[in-house]
């Protein structure tokens, strides 16, 4: 026995574990979590699609009409797309509790607002 001093000291202390569903830990500054799009800034350059290691990003349409399909199930939360985006259309969120009941729920479709064309 060589640990009794530490063991007795710890008898007086509270448990160090966190009761998760009831208690939450605030994510640190700059946590790598889910990303999101500001779709109006997107120019459809495909840079994020090329760099994504998990093929989580899909481009629908071309050029400035392009829309984004983002699959969280494939995302490895590396944040490379945030770094590579030339127009800062992609931004990191702090949402790290990513649980879904079905696969379709993992895919987020970022749509553009329908705009009336001015002649």
């Amino acid at each position: 026995m060589a640990m009794e001093d530490d063991m007795f000291r710890n008898l007086k202390e509270k448990p160090v574990t966190i009761q998760f569903p009831y208690e939450h830990v605030e994510p640190v500054e700059g946590v790598r979590a889910k990303v999101s799009w500001d779709i109006d800034k997107c120019i459809g350059c495909r840079l994020c699609v090329t760099i994504c290691p998990g093929n989580a990003i899909q481009l629908v349409g071309r050029g400035r009409q392009a829309e984004i399909k983002y699959n969280v199930g494939r995302c490895i939360l590396c944040g490379e797309c945030v770094d590579v985006c030339p127009t800062k259309a992609i931004y990191a969120t702090k949402e790290f509790e990513i649980v879904f009941n079905n696969r379709r729920g993992m895919i987020t479709h970022f749509r553009r607002k329908k705009r009336k064309r001015t002649s």
Binding site: T50, I51, C52, P53, I76, C78, E80
Partner: peptide, 13 residues
């Protein structure tokens, strides 16, 4: 079948 930039993350795993 992956490019060099993607492989950084594969190597990590």
């Amino acid at each position: 079948n992956r490019n060099y930039q993607q492989l950084v993350y594969l190597s990590e795993r």
